[in-house]
Amino acid sequence: MATTVVKLKQVELGSGRPKIAVPITGENQVEVLAQATAIVQAKPDIVEWRLDYFQNILNVDDYRETAIKLIERLNDIPLLTTFRTEKEGGEMTLGITDYVSIYQQVISNHLTDALDLELFLPKTVVSELVAAAQDADIAVIMSSHDFQKTPVKEEIISRLEKMDQLGADVAKIAVMPQSGSDVATLLAATAAAHEKLKTPIISMAMGKLGKVSRISGEVFGSVLTFGTVGSASAPGQIELPALRREIAQLALDKM
């Protein structure tokens, strides 16, 4: 089935080779902007700002000022904004009311190009934020992260299908493999879901075992991978230059 192309500024998810996103993990405005400067020089396709690292996130004025300066610094590089909850590997404990409030600020002020929204949040929160983001022309990357294990193939596919049904523009799943078989499970599930769904898929197996999944997206159907310029935001992320080389080596148009 042909994949729908999701456009973030000039970057197309679901078209051509997998794109590369790089995380910003600064704890304050100075660190965020310093990381952004280094990342921009490396020219990734997308920058992900991990708000759960930003210590003053509940200060609306500080967040807004930092976001505006960050967007200016990124220029034409699209911004993905993510608050990763603690239960899915995030760095900060935050109640659902504050989570929703932060995302409402992001949406109402148009301070991002795409928003990460976790599948297993309360259904009403998911549906309301999906609608609000898409009304503001902000793409929703719906996600599920399992830092303990790799679910069976059918469960991985089921989660991706559920994201599609809930209106996600892009469906993302990350798992923790305990064996090579787990990595194979993730890749097989990705390929099966890619054939079944029009929604673009992002998938990865984390840690050292899963590194192959971060470079083989074009083969199995994952449209985005995450690399590093400086600090990583998840285990197994590969430095951007090396990741770019490996993706190019596996490009289908070279085979």
Results as ranks from 00 to 15, higher is better:
M204V: 13
V223Y: 04
G227N: 12
V219W: 11
I215T: 13
T228V: 11
I215A: 06
S216V: 15
S203T: 15
S216Q: 00
G217T: 03
I202S: 08
G227P: 08
G207P: 05
V223S: 12
F220D: 01
L209C: 03
G227M: 14
G227Y: 10
S222Q: 07
G210C: 06
T228L: 12
F220R: 12
G221D: 02
T228A: 15
T199W: 12
V219A: 08
T199F: 09
T199E: 15
G207T: 11
V212A: 11
F226R: 09
F226D: 12
G227D: 10
P200C: 10
F220A: 12
L224W: 07
I202Q: 03
G210F: 00
V212H: 07
I215P: 02
T199N: 06
M204A: 00
S216I: 10
V229Y: 13
F220K: 06
V229E: 15
S222M: 10
S213V: 05
K211D: 03
G227K: 11
G221V: 08
V219K: 01
G210W: 01
K211E: 14
F220P: 00
L224N: 14
G221W: 05
G210P: 04
I215E: 13
T225C: 14
L209S: 00
G207E: 02
A205E: 02
F220M: 07
G207D: 02
T228D: 11
K208W: 00
K208I: 00
I201V: 12
L209E: 00
E218C: 09
S213C: 09
I201P: 03
G207W: 02
